[in-house]
Design a protein around this nucleic acid. Sequence first.
RNA 1: GCCGAUGUAGCUCAACGGUAGAGCAACUGACUUGUAAUCAGUAGGUUGCCGGUUCAAGUCCGGCCAUCGGCUCCA
Length: 637
Amino acid sequence: MEGKISVTVAGRPVQVAHGASAGQLLKGFGNGRLVAARVNGKPVDLSCPVGEGATVEPVLADSPEGLEILRHSTAHLMAQAVQQLFPGVQVTIGPAIEEGFYYDFAAPRPFALDDLPRIEARMRELAGLDLKIERLEMSREEAVARFAALGERYKVEILSQLQEPRVSVYRQGDWMDLCRGPHVPSTGHLQAFKLLSVAGAYWRGDERNPMLSRIYGTSFASERELAEHLRLLELARQRDHRKLGRELELFFFDPVSPGSAFFLPRGTVIYRELESYIRRLYRRYGFAEVITPELFRNELWQRSGHWEMFRENMFLTSDGERGAGAPDYGLKPMNCPGHALIYRLEKRSYRDLPLRLADFGRLHRAERAGVLHGLTRVRAMAQDDAHIFCLEGQVGAEIDRNLQMVKEVYQALGFGPPKARLATMPDKHLGSEELWRQSEAVLAQALERNGFGYVVNRGEGAFYGPKIELYVPDALGRNWQLATIQLDYNLPQRFDLSYIDASGLPARPVMIHRAILGSIERFIGVLLEHTGGVLPFWLAPEQVRVLSLSEKVEPYAAEVAELLERRGARVARDLRNEKLGLKVRQAELAKVPYIVVVGEREAAQRGVSLRRLRGAKQESLSLEQLAALIGQEAPPG
RNA sequence: GCCGAUGUAGCUCAACGGUAGAGCAACUGACUUGUAAUCAGUAGGUUGCCGGUUCAAGUCCGGCCAUCGGCUCCA
């Protein structure tokens, strides 16, 4: 059996010649979609030789793994095109990302949107040449020499930080890039791609480093999938909550208060309905609502640790009389210190705990100008915030209770099941590492107990404790972080909170911070994008619009509207002297759930013609039937 | 904060450095209407703000403000 080895190819044992490549073994797989191989579970190039006893699996372009390789290769193709078109541009890194890829360049002049068509055209030429993509292995020193000769300073820097003695370089045509790989076998595999946007990005994401020029793009296994993706992007644009906010007259922003929304009457209805819903749940889940100050002397922030850890995100101020002096007050960015003061008001017994304090107080955070984004990233907001003070031994049950509430709320609001992340100790933190690890474990166990799959988000916790972050998927498949549950051993210590335990001795309570909707502002933004503005009846600013057909039926239309208003519905009347088609169109565009039409026919029968939003057909109902229908639309909770 | 782009009527958008326009909305009038746009007319602007270049600036240049796309899902 000289020169033969035994391997397993796609689950089948075979004998092949020594030195055969993965690509040779997988010939015929995937119908041209074969882009790479998995050998012994590791993704490799098709050119990779296979050893004795190996398991070889195909990686196809439309699999998640294949797509990642495809995109990474497309990033290389783009870099090649860029360097051909723009001499003097250095390459840095260019990974595949969730929905595509990017490549960061050190360019004498940052790229503009206008550059993209040219780059894309060159990419198509290079793809058309079907250049072979070859992997070369070499010593780190040799690679450093090569990239230094090319003037690629960033690559040299990357190489100097690598541990491996040998590194890989990929070559396509006369262009090469330091890269771990794997890659598709040739540029001809890259067909369905598009460059999307340009952006500035710091080298290694650190603002102390030079600003690079980033180009974003995406690629897919087929033109059809690319077109579908672009369609989704367009859909997302249509559903942009900022656009809907304007069209549906919900809210607006004015430059005189960047990052702070003005909620118009219609938007305010949504805002207050959401609050009311959470309030109803608070009764059931045992929370007590409080109202606390917005402005506190700095000494409070010094005690809570915000002064040290959060001051750069706070609005600091002073009273008008002495305005010129140093600011001695801070607008609250969080409710927790205020709640600690409420806790401290009385001597607490273990019998009083858990104490659950809820607060819809307005919070202000000095977010950097560049990160503001509609309602989803604001400087002024309210949260459905609560703090739970409890015994160490009650923490598990309290977290269970809140995870339960999370499930209930997101189901009631029409979202899919949330996914969890456990955010652990950040660099900037208060408290000992031991305490941190202990609280992280408590949260992890609660997640498991409640059937939440989770991933660990290292170093992303709050400065005072680890967090559970809950991500909710919307209708377009995007995930939003909304709910959060955070454990805090630090504030109780800083405020010297205590209770008297069963044996009469003082003990330290644990504090849990939590919000279900997160900020109401952000939640409304997400809800609008999730629903496209078509809200459930109970949240609709205008629930019923009564349309009259002519002047003659105005009194009857008014009667119908009043009837529904007495039943508690939010009703608008459209008695204008306009054609019915126009009124219906406008009611549809305003996304009113129930469109009630009355003409002489309905007036004679004392009934209505009901058209539901987005439903083309009409129903004839009596007034009683209509009232009963409205009565059934009860809000959740 | 940093990089890039954008800012024209309430909204969506036009306007080779040479008199700022259209559609929708608003207002007035006619039409009395049957399930996604009836017709006609009227009015609406210090082109984000400040400065500069020019005989002439919405347009070119600079500063500021705001908005939009981004700012480590690592070679």
